[in-house]
Computed example of a mutant assay.
Amino acid sequence: MQNVIKRKKYINVIQHLAFEDLGSFGKVFQSQGFELRYYHAGVNIPESIYQDESILVVLGGPIGVYETDIYPYLQQEIDGLKYRIQNQLPTLGICLGAQLLVAASGAKVYAGHIKEIGWSTLQLSEQGNASPLKYLHDVNVLHWHGDTFELPQNATLLASSEHYPHQAFALGKHILAMQFHPEADAQRFEQWLIGHCSELNHAKIDILQLRANNQRYGTALAQAGEQLLLEWLAGL
């Protein structure tokens, strides 16, 4: 019998903040046979991952897409994502990652009128209800951002929220951007509360309520997020 060597599948992940990792999505990817390869913004992101046909996930962080003068490596990420958009390479952007996809598409990212931090449901568009985001119908998701964005040209709007009309969009079948956090891991939420304590206090966010809502909604979000991710993967 001839031995067959299977090529290992892997996910490239760009991380901007130590505790904002793939969260509950990590287990889903691993259950599908993927190896996770993390790269850290400003430290060790090889240009080759932008040309790699493997899935690329770009995660969140507290810096702004428009702060390229302070964080010059953001421009490298934007340029790399332009290539992936042009070539329809499978890419998932979450929070800052979604905003970087907006910038790479040529649309504007800018400071919003309110800090949207907390749990609430989304308003799905008609296209959103026909997309993997349909599993988030009536599910409270975690929002954690102060910036917002214009909808990129040729993008399909998938979801809005109470405060912002643009929360998720797709660029074809291979590129999905979500400004909220479907990957939030309820078991590790305390890391977010500690890591973002200055922002939470400055924005006068009720931390006790935020923690209680995580305990109330976190499990349902993880379950819906798993179905969302599995359907997106199946469509690639």
Score class of each variant (00 low, 15 high):
121 T>I: 11
141 V>K: 08
182 P>F: 12
96 L>T: 03
176 L>M: 12
194 I>N: 13
85 I>E: 07
232 W>Q: 01
156 T>I: 15
51 Q>T: 14
187 Q>R: 15
90 P>W: 02
120 S>K: 12
129 N>I: 07
220 A>S: 14
75 Q>A: 14
98 A>I: 01
109 V>L: 09
65 V>A: 15
120 S>G: 07
168 A>N: 06
195 G>S: 09
112 G>W: 02
113 H>F: 11
92 L>A: 03
60 G>Y: 07
13 V>C: 10
161 S>N: 03
39 Y>S: 06
111 A>Q: 11
43 V>Q: 13
61 G>E: 06
29 F>N: 01
63 I>W: 05
22 L>M: 13
43 V>K: 14
130 A>C: 12
90 P>A: 12
2 Q>P: 10
209 Q>C: 05
111 A>L: 13
40 H>R: 14
232 W>T: 02
62 P>C: 11
228 L>N: 00
99 Q>G: 09
216 R>F: 01
92 L>V: 07
162 E>G: 08
63 I>Q: 15
204 K>H: 13
175 I>T: 04
168 A>Q: 03
133 L>G: 06
136 L>K: 05
197 C>W: 10
53 E>W: 02
63 I>S: 08
182 P>D: 09
234 A>M: 03
60 G>L: 09
122 L>C: 12
91 T>G: 07
45 I>S: 05
203 A>R: 03
34 F>I: 01
159 A>T: 04
165 P>K: 11
79 D>P: 01
157 L>Y: 01
49 I>Y: 07
96 L>I: 03
38 Y>L: 10
122 L>N: 02
98 A>L: 05
109 V>I: 10
231 E>I: 09
47 E>P: 00
29 F>K: 01
43 V>T: 14
229 L>K: 04
142 L>K: 03
7 R>F: 04
220 A>C: 10
214 N>S: 11
11 I>S: 01
171 L>Y: 12
106 G>F: 13
97 G>I: 07
26 G>C: 11
70 I>M: 13
25 F>I: 08
139 V>Y: 11
183 E>Y: 05
9 K>V: 01
8 K>E: 09
230 L>K: 12
86 Q>Y: 05
84 R>T: 02
233 L>T: 00
41 A>S: 15
197 C>Q: 15
220 A>I: 15
25 F>P: 00
27 K>Y: 13
68 T>Y: 13
60 G>K: 06
220 A>G: 01
60 G>V: 06
60 G>C: 09
219 T>A: 15
33 G>A: 04
164 Y>V: 06
68 T>P: 02
213 N>R: 07
208 L>E: 15
147 D>S: 07
44 N>Y: 11
41 A>D: 10
114 I>S: 08
109 V>E: 02
30 Q>H: 00
159 A>F: 02
39 Y>K: 08
236 L>H: 00
45 I>Q: 07
77 E>C: 10
175 I>H: 02
114 I>C: 09
43 V>Y: 13
57 V>G: 04
10 Y>W: 06
195 G>D: 03
126 E>T: 14
20 E>V: 02
223 Q>G: 02
14 I>C: 07
235 G>F: 00
14 I>S: 02
46 P>S: 12
22 L>I: 04
187 Q>C: 12
80 G>N: 08
198 S>H: 12
154 N>L: 09
165 P>H: 08
146 G>M: 05
